[in-house]
Nucleic acid binder design. Structure first.
Lengths: 123, 123
DNA sequence: ATTATTGTATTAAGCAACTAATACAGTAAT
DNA sequence: ATTACTGTATTAGTTGCTTAATACAATAAT
């Protein structure tokens, strides 16, 4: 329900990522209708034009299909959705590893840091 | 030597991060002079105003000190620099964990992914 | 003293993202 | 047929980032 938009990057890109996230996590199931441009814009408190741009952009990934005057639906291809989810995760990981390497932190050290951060929950 | 600036975010922020990275990795040692605004701007192929903004911004972190008309120097406080390095790393990790969690990936799974990505080097 | 270099400030211009307010065409529902 | 909803397009105005071209004061070097 939360869009969590910030001014650090173009809003339409953040919209793309948030909607994509909802799709790959099953929040918007395969084949289901997603809200209309106007509804989406209202929900996210952005201009309809900006949401339109985000949805058009998202269409290029084939995750959503344009039903002309009947709105847009999530693709039926569940395997493709799962593939997308893994791809996003691997891109995130790769970016994280690079940023860490630039700070002089190896993958092994990163694993150790993750373990450490897990322990802190017990406070 | 590479600045690797892209248009995805404000350039002055990318400059702040790159210079900060060079400091915490020892590329610019404690107490040393960093290049002048104009030199830095030339190196990074940006406008002096943009570099000025980045350096002013970076000053707030205390990592660099303003010597008035004698340029800027990296702080002598090596412990503080190391502290900064760890803080950046932990922020990166935290952000990564959150993004992964949003994709339905647990810290344990993330560790597994890191191990997997390490194996792929042997191709 | 003069010169060069430092940081800093100012003004103007351009650009991309975003908002705003409409308008239009197609289709589903009634 | 009419109504209400879809996506789409257009035009205009605002804002923040960036570049550009200077200018100024303070200091280091000579």
């Amino acid at each position: 329900m939360a869009w969590n938009l910030d001014g650090s990057r173009p809003i339409y890109l953040q919209l793309v990522e948030e909607i994509r996230r909802r799709i790959v996590t099953g929040e918007y199931p395969p084949g289901s209708h997603i809200p209309s441009v106007r509804d989406f814009a209202t929900q996210a408190s952005v201009n309809p034009n900006t949401m339109q741009r985000a949805l058009t952009e998202l269409e290029r990934t084939q995750l959503i299909e344009n039903q002309r005057t009947n709105g847009r639906t999530v693709t039926e291809d569940a395997a493709m959705i799962e593939r997308e989810r893994r791809m996003i995760a691997e891109q995130e990981l790769k970016a994280c590893l690079i940023r860490m390497q630039k700070l002089g932190i190896s993958p092994e050290e990163l694993i150790e840091m993750i373990r450490e951060s897990g322990k802190e929950k017990e406070n």
